[in-house]
Amino acid sequence: MTAWIDLDALWKIVVIGLLCGAGLPAVFAVGLRVLSRSERRAEAVAMASVPGLDGAMTGAAPASATRTRAETALAGLCFAVILAAIAWGVAFIVAGG
């Protein structure tokens, strides 16, 4: 530690800044990406069910257009982490931290 720079405080600020500044938006983006998978799947099913569009119809059954439980659970977990971070931040500010 120097007289001008407190390195212990500096690394804590950098780590928290990276986690909150880049980590939380990344978690939110993952949640949105997981939710959008079923929409893309529904579009693919709709395109496959139209005869004469992008080639001939195949005999294969189209993929399911519904959201799986794993996708819903993962998206819910991502959004729960975001809500928990927001609640922690508000509680920290209210407590005078």
Rank of each mutant, 00 (worst) to 15 (best):
A3N: 11
A42I: 10
T2Q: 07
L35F: 02
A73E: 01
G23Q: 08
I93W: 09
S64A: 09
A75E: 00
V50W: 02
I13Y: 01
V15W: 09
T72Q: 12
S49K: 09
A87N: 05
L18W: 11
T58W: 10
T58A: 10
A46G: 06
A29W: 11
I93K: 00
L24R: 00
R37C: 00
L10F: 12
R67A: 09
V34F: 01
R33H: 11
L24W: 03
G52M: 01
L10E: 08
A26T: 14
W11C: 01
W11R: 14
A29Q: 12
M1F: 07
G23I: 05
I93T: 12
S38R: 13
T68F: 03
A65R: 07
T68A: 10
A84V: 15
G31L: 00
I13E: 12
I16R: 02
A80C: 03
A80E: 01
L24I: 15
G21N: 07
S38N: 12
A29L: 15
K12V: 04
I82S: 03
L10A: 14
G89R: 02
L77R: 06
S36M: 08
L53C: 09
A61H: 07
A65H: 07
I86K: 01
D8A: 15
M47S: 11
A65L: 01
L32R: 08
P62D: 09
L83Q: 03
A95P: 03
L18V: 14
V14M: 15
A63P: 01
T2Y: 04
S36Y: 08
W88V: 14
L32D: 14
G31V: 08
A56T: 13
A84W: 06
L19T: 05
G76Y: 03
W4H: 03
L83E: 02
A9W: 04
T58S: 09
T2G: 13
P25M: 06
A60Q: 09
L32H: 13
T68K: 02
G97M: 06
G76F: 08
A63D: 14
A73Q: 08
G23N: 08
A46Q: 11
L77N: 03
S64D: 14
R40P: 00
G17S: 15
I13V: 13
V90C: 12
D8T: 05
R37N: 07
A3E: 15
M1L: 10
A85D: 04
A29D: 11
A87D: 04
R69T: 04
G52S: 05
F92V: 14
A26N: 09
V34M: 04
L7E: 06
K12W: 05
A80H: 01
A3H: 08
T2A: 04
R41A: 14
A56Y: 12
G52A: 04
I82D: 03
A3W: 13
F92N: 08
S49E: 13
V30P: 03
E71Q: 10
A56I: 00
G21R: 12
M47D: 08
A56E: 15
P62S: 07
L18F: 10
A95M: 10
R41G: 06
L77Y: 07
A75G: 07
M47C: 06
R69S: 13
A84F: 15
V30E: 00
G89L: 10
E43H: 10
M47Q: 08
G89Q: 01
L77W: 09
A65Q: 06
D54V: 15
L24G: 00
A60K: 14
G96I: 06
V34E: 06
E39F: 14
W88K: 06
L77E: 02
C78W: 03
